[in-house]
Amino acid sequence: MNTSRPQNLTGYVPLILPAVVLVMFFVVPFGSMILISFYKNLGGGLYEEILNLDNYRRLISPFFVGLLIASFGLALAVAAISIVIAFPFSYLLVNSPRSTQVVWLIFMLSILSLSESIIGFAWSTILSRTAGVSNLLVFLGLLDRPASYAPGLGALIAGVVYTAIPYAVLVLYPILSRVDPHIEEAARTLGTSPLRTFFIVVLPMQRNTIVTTFLMILVFTLGTYLMPQILGRPQHWTLSVAISDQALMQSNIPFAAALAVFLVIVTLLIVGTVVLFGRKENAS
């Protein structure tokens, strides 16, 4: 096909229009957010256009260290649990009949797209005293009386893992579907059991995939916003919660922007590592 350049300027319109919209409504707001992070806060949603580093100096504080521990502690725990469940699941999924795959993909996509407020509500209900699993445990005689398990750190991790599993599966599924089935077949022909094949052939082969998926779940979990408020206690609030709290409740947009810039840098570092890993994979 003729893939030369458009002959005249009108030919570039399909490119220029969307590009202008994206620049105006994403690049400009994003840039102005970075700029605001250097402004002086006056309170009440107002700020003065004096460049200074005060908002970033506030990042060296026990408040911020607490936020970091809450955000990354949660993200690491969730990423570890999710990948232990999602990797074997995705491996089995790509090897199952097509109709099974489609049903699971619909289910996973649906859970991934569901509002955090709905999932948070569902988990707070199933962990509640009146409608929760504890009633089942009482019925089975494992518990004396119904108990409430939410809010708490366990409830928060369970809820976020619940949303992270579909995400991990949808990252792993296309990668695992491209794996050459002959490698496993060869191992099986040589008499290796399916379980052993999984541990000594599939897992080592997919080491990079596992690392990059782990990092992607980390980024995904850093974005969780409602779950810490519904299923956690204030000490479990993450960077995402703190950013919107500073912007809307404390009306301190410059400090919210500084926190957001920090979150962007961390995210880009993680994504950059993922891309590097991907390159190494392609090169080898």
Partner: peptide, 14 residues
């Protein structure tokens, strides 16, 4: 790709 709160804050200030 970025956490949604980034886009949200960008739009709020914009």
């Amino acid at each position: 790709l970025l956490p949604p709160v980034i886009t949200a804050l960008g739009f709020l200030s914009f």
